[in-house]
Each structure stands twice: as C-alpha cells, then as structure tokens.
C-alpha cells in the first residue's frame, strides 16, 4: 500500500532551504550570540533527516552523495590541526589567533581561528547524527 505523499514531499523540498540557511546562520553567530558548531550541525543534519522522512534513504543518498564516516574523519582532523598549529610557532597547544581583515562585500571583519575548530565540530556532529540515523534506518 503506497500512498501519494505529494504534499509532504513538496513541503520538505521548500522547508529544507529554510532549515539549512538557519543552520548556517546559527553556526556563524556562535561567537557573540547563542549558537555555534554543535547546534548548527544538529540543525543541518535535521534538514537532511526531513528529506529522509519525506522521501527515502536511497533517494537522499543519490541527492547528497556524502560518505558521513569520512565527514567525521575530516572534522576531527580539522579540529586537531587547528589545535596543533600553534605548537609549530612556539605557542602552547590550543592557542587561538585573531585579526581584523577587510573582506569584499562584508567590510571589516574579525577572523578567529576558533571558527576553524567550530567547523570541525560542525562536520563531526553532522557525520555522527547521519551515521546513527542511516545505520538504524537501513536495518532490514
């Protein structure tokens, strides 16, 4: 018995963009306002989970062809590299640097290496959540 899921599929296609944008916004807002890598990662993976609910796992795997276990590895490597980089410069482990740059379109911004560490956290959270959900969901 296969029912016609037109409404939820079309709505999921639209709402995916909103959730994904909100995830990026929360991830970037983490330094001065509530948010950060963990919440942003959970929101991004929840957008993918919405697609999995509306369609099915096989379709979503063809749409977003990402191997989530390698994503965990990339995130951990990024976090470790950010932490280990100051040791080459003679500073203690986990020293963070920041400076003010003038970027095109945005203007004067302060860039901080904690952002790179947060990106690692983001990727690990997305990878772990999606790996758990895929391995549970594929048990047939």
């Amino acid at each position: 018995m296969k029912t016609n899921d037109m409404i939820i599929q079309f709505t999921a296609k639209i709402v995916f963009f909103i959730i994904f944008f909100f995830a990026i916004h929360i991830f970037l807002a983490g330094h001065y306002t509530p948010g950060g890598g963990f919440v942003g990662g959970l929101l991004a993976s929840s957008a993918i989970v919405l697609l999995v609910l509306a369609f099915d796992i096989k379709t979503v795997r063809t749409v977003i062809p990402v191997n989530y276990t390698t994503l965990i590895g990339i995130g951990l490597l990024l976090a470790l590299a950010t932490a280990a980089f100051p040791m080459f410069k003679g500073d203690p482990f986990f020293t963070h640097y920041f400076d003010y740059f003038t970027l095109p379109l945005i203007g004067k911004t302060s860039l901080h290496t904690a952002m790179l560490f947060d990106t690692g956290v983001f990727l690990v959270v997305v990878g772990v959540t999606m790996t758990i959900i895929q391995t549970i969901g594929e048990d047939e």
């Binding site: 296969k2 029912t3 016609n4 037109m6 409404i7 079309f10 709505t11």
Partner: peptide, 20 residues
C-alpha cells in the same frame, strides 16, 4: 499543495488524502 493548505487552513475542512 497550495490548494490543500488553503482548504486545511480554513476551519471546518481538512484534507486527509490525495488519490494516487
């Protein structure tokens, strides 16, 4: 989808199913 949402949002009527 728009028609179904409009019918559902006006109280008294709810769309429960779409035929195949």
């Amino acid at each position: 989808t728009l028609l179904s949402s409009l019918i559902t949002l006006t109280p008294g009527t709810i769309v429960v199913h779409i035929s195949d």
